[in-house]
Design a protein around this nucleic acid. Structure first.
Lengths: 115, 115
DNA sequence: CAGTATCCTCCTAGATACTG
DNA sequence: CAGTATCTAGGAGGATACTG
């Protein structure tokens, strides 16, 4: 697996590339919530623990630019925007599900009990 | 999914926990190489692109402490150490394989051609 | 409501040098 | 050969304030 460049950034393997697209603190939590319904900005903001407006808007923008989600703006008063997962996003959810299941296994393996 | 603490570090979801164990730049590349045979330190050092001694030794130590690999020291001259994957490491390889396949799909999806 | 702009902190990884 | 120690840089994410 040789190095390759995408979007002016150097990658060494496919996992690194995938993580550059759906990694970080909040992208998976966002995609996970969008997997079976449309959410509006404020719903995500209130539902994802600890997320700030800065990180939410930054993450949404990147997921949007990379085609994992789509956005619809309703020019009402007050303003409403809705985020929906795309086909590319749905494929991501498959691996997120696997990662999540593995994470639970590992937590159990390490004796961490969830409520 | 409530927050939880492990090893004095705060986590928000199972994916974050999994990534704290097998994430970072080099842990997956190491586990990937150990999946079907034992490697010695210098073989890993020469085979994993761009890795420094510092990062190799640091990553190996953490994988060892977390039970993903085991280590055997042969007190010969010159010194020889061999690293072998454990059952826990093999489970990790399953998800790494899935992530890797997803990464290849995504690269293809984004028009990145590998050689 | 749905964001953006600025500034700042911490942590991962790189560079370099050294050792049993 | 198989590492460890020290120092540094870059980038992800936090805090806070502001806006169409």
């Amino acid at each position: 697996m040789p190095d390759f460049v995408s979007d002016k950034h150097l990658f060494h393997n496919p996992v690194e590339f995938a993580m550059s697209k759906i990694g970080g603190m909040y992208k998976m939590p966002i995609l996970w919530r969008l997997k079976d319904k449309t959410w509006r900005y404020s719903e995500l903001a209130h539902n994802i623990p600890h997320i700030s407006d800065r990180m939410l808007s930054k993450s949404l923008k990147e997921l949007l630019n990379d085609g994992f989600i789509s956005k619809e703006i309703f020019p009402e008063v007050p303003l409403r925007t809705e985020y929906t997962i795309t086909e590319r996003g749905n494929k991501a959810v498959t691996i997120i599900t696997a990662l999540r299941n593995y994470g639970f296994e590992l937590m159990n393996d390490f004796g961490i009990k969830e409520k």
